[in-house]
Amino acid sequence: MNNKQWKQSALLMSLLLFVWIGGSANELPDGDSIAQRINARDEGVSVSRDVKMEMTDKRGKTRIRETSGYRKYYDDEKRTIIIYRSPKNVKDTGFLTFDYADPEKDDDQWLYLPAMRKVRRISASDRGDYFLGTDFSYEDIKLETRVSIKDYTRKTIGEDVVNDHHCLLVEMIPVNETVAKELGYGKAETCVDDSIWIVRRSRIWDVQGNPLKTTINSDIRQVQGIWTVHRMQVENHKTGHQTVFTFRNVDYQAVIDDNVFTKQRLKRGL
């Protein structure tokens, strides 16, 4: 048994001991309070970063994209812009989103495709579509490491260990069939690290109940005092396709001008 396996065994033993001496799943925080703690976690008012996207199909063929992006909060409204740096066939493609605090209000989203030289408005209900060939949906990209409060009902179903970290298991069910179809998800089971309130693993099923994908967040470390996921890996069980996002040059103290989050900048590039 190697060191990692020893650690996992020790953690599991601790969990079993915790249950045996009287603890039970009923005393675990409920799903909604876990979601609120995830979303209350400090993400900084703004951030700039580069993301390397590696997409590998089931035959092992890998495509790599380099992007730069900014995100900034305006009270509870979040604005995000992502611009592709390479390769040439997607270079200068841009995505801009305004995510409003009002759950009843649809997000506003725009896509700039350099081949058309036009900024195109896209429907917020496209959120279940895969983002530019990755295995992340537009919704996943928008939420980053947060969770949607309005789209799911949540229930804490137990505990687990992911990469040696204790997690709370939360089952998330879309609030209705329409939302499920929009998201493309019938059920999600997230494993939330209750020491830093970051999702370490998500297992997702499609609307028919078949396993769809698994996301693993790793290389989580503090940057300027803020817990930051530096690696997000998602594997699509239906297609065998896999996407890895690696975050670099994360800076929560970068001064980001408001005019960065405009259609003009989307077209012009960062």
Binding site: D106, D108, Q109, R121, I122, S123, A124, S125
Partner: peptide, 11 residues
């Protein structure tokens, strides 16, 4: 002009 309404975008 353009705007999005649910599944639809009007241009």
């Amino acid at each position: 002009l353009s705007n999005a309404f649910g599944d639809w975008v009007i241009r």
